[in-house]
Design a protein around this nucleic acid. Structure first.
Lengths: 159, 159
DNA sequence: ACTGAAAACAATTGCGA
DNA sequence: TCGCAATTGTTTTCAGT
């Protein structure tokens, strides 16, 4: 049960950089007709290899020029505390993305803000008010080196 | 010079979750004709409020189930060292996303791997071989709490 | 499983308001 | 800036290989 073949891998490489190309253009690049190419794309979406299709919005253009990575340590690693914290993350719009991790830290958050003052208000409300949080460290993002979210697509052997 | 208005903000909220909806459907949701809606989308793309349009690929489906966040400290914060490191990041496919930050750490990397063994090979090649790197810490991702990359879109006042 | 033609559908452009 | 109508272009379906 293989999810995709060599040609699908090429298609995935293309659409994870730009999903608005026509099937015609993608087909030309991978040596397929527009029709065949489109069928494959549909299939990749149906089986979940392609999880979603989104526009990337410029945080700066949209009034949130400040970005931070925050490393959070919880008071105790108890599953109810972790679950409660996850719920809080989900409903907080400033937190764009977040990861539960093992290591020195429990959670890594990617946070955007209108300004440093706003971020300080946010930290006061979100971190200091929360008794489950032992501590946190803020890393201010100066530059994003890789723009995309592209994953290197494994090219499978043909069977 | 305002980049976008209230209606554009609604459109942005929609397309950053799903950019394959037709202008008709988006238009219905924001109270606009398909034509008007599409003109706005084109404009938002032209002026860079929408930075790009991509498919999100499942790292798991594509043979890279292991994800790590790596905190890297460089030997010295010299701009030539930083630039050289940024170049290395860009050409390394395992590194999906990376940030240059201020704080205890210089860089935060988001890395995917086929397996832990692969990741160890990668660290040996990438980190230990690089004399510019003072140290690094690996945080293994157990769970991604927020799936998307959605930024909360500021709704501007009308002038 | 692919191609190619035709039908259905969506995006773009021109125009009047 | 909008909506409508006409045009252009894209996607989907279907028959044939």
């Amino acid at each position: 049960m293989k999810l995709y073949d060599r040609i699908d891998a090429s298609i995935l490489e293309i659409v994870q950089k730009n999903n608005r190309l026509t099937s015609q253009v993608i087909g030309d690049q991978v040596g397929l007709s527009a029709t065949a190419c489109q069928r494959r794309l549909k299939r990749l979406r149906d089986i979940g290899v392609i999880e979603g299709d989104v526009s990337i919005i410029s945080a700066r253009a949209v009034g949130r020029p400040i970005q931070m990575i925050v490393l959070v340590t919880l008071e105790r690693e108890r599953s109810d505390i972790i679950d409660r914290f996850k719920r809080a993350l989900r409903i907080t719009p400033e937190i764009v993305n977040s990861f539960y991790v093992t290591g020195e830290t429990d959670f890594v958050l990617y946070v955007t803000a209108r300004s440093m003052e706003d971020y300080e208000v946010f930290t006061r409300n979100f971190f200091y008010e929360n008794p489950d949080i032992r501590g946190f460290k803020t890393l201010v993002v100066m530059d994003r080196v890789k723009a995309g979210f592209s994953v290197p697509v494994e090219v499978p052997d043909e069977d």
